[in-house]
């Protein structure tokens, strides 16, 4: 599904992503864990095209996309739920969802219902401005909006950030259920335990480089990971 080779990205002269290579196979949930400032968010932004890259290759379903503008990448099947939700605050919940399907020309009624079924809290607020939703609801909306594009690959950036534990579980349950529907997920998390628990495979990123990789379960058992990210 996704192949990344020696990807590099910098802010000015400071290189933040220093040659990352990773693969996500169709139907997998892959977790990318690492501490604050390790380059996780920058990597995702580079994948969706909103952060310029300084080198490397990105292939989506075999097609090179590193030169494609962000909206083309959405059309090709990539949807990115950014860090901090980034909902369209003045627009209604339903308008936010409709805009999620901006690149599609077919009927979206089924998809709207699907999102409201996944996140019933949104259904009650469909006419309300997105800016008035609680943090958890905004996270649901951001995910719902991305799903409206019917993505083949979903990039999720810190979906659990700032949420109550119960909500975190609810969001991660939805991520796990997407796998059953055939959506491939690349999940970035600081909450490594929760992310690795639902992931098929995981990568650990440290100061812009992949330092460890393996199955989710193996990484959870790895003493280095446990010490560095799980606090045990």
């Amino acid at each position: 599904m996704l192949e990344v080779e020696d990807l590099r990205s910098a802010y000015g002269r400071i290189e933040v992503v220093k040659g990352v290579s990773l693969k996500v196979a169709a139907g997998e949930i892959v977790a990318l864990v690492g501490s604050n400032g390790a380059g996780k968010t920058t990597l995702l932004r580079a994948l969706s095209g909103v952060q310029p890259i300084t080198g490397g290759r990105i292939r989506l379903q075999g097609e090179s996309i590193e030169k494609a503008p962000p909206h083309r990448r959405v059309a090709l099947g990539m949807a990115h739920v950014p860090e901090g939700r980034q909902v369209f605050a003045p627009l209604s919940v339903e308008d936010n969802l409709r805009l999620g399907a901006f690149q599609r020309n077919d009927d979206i009624a089924v998809d709207l219902e699907r999102v409201y079924t996944l996140f019933p809290a949104l259904a009650d607020k469909r006419r309300q401005a997105a800016g008035g939703l609680s943090g958890g609801q905004q996270q649901m909306l951001a995910m719902g909006r991305a799903l409206m594009a019917r993505p083949k690959l979903l990039l999720l950036d810190e979906p659990s950030m700032g949420l109550a534990p119960l909500l975190v579980q609810q969001i991660l349950d939805v991520v796990a259920s997407l796998k059953a529907e055939g959506v491939t997920v690349l999940l970035v998390e600081q909450n490594a335990t929760a992310a690795l628990a639902i992931a098929d495979r995981g990568y650990v990123i440290e100061t812009g480089r992949i330092s460890l990789q393996g199955s989710g379960a193996a990484l959870l058992r790895d003493p280095k990971v446990r010490e560095a990210y799980l606090g045990v």
């Binding site: 980034q86 369209f88 690149q103 991305a146 594009a149």
Partner: peptide, 16 residues
């Protein structure tokens, strides 16, 4: 309106 409210998110939903 979406572009005015949040340009990053507008790009991410596929708005040019």
């Amino acid at each position: 309106l979406a572009t005015a409210s949040n340009r990053l998110a507008a790009q991410l939903v596929g708005i040019n």
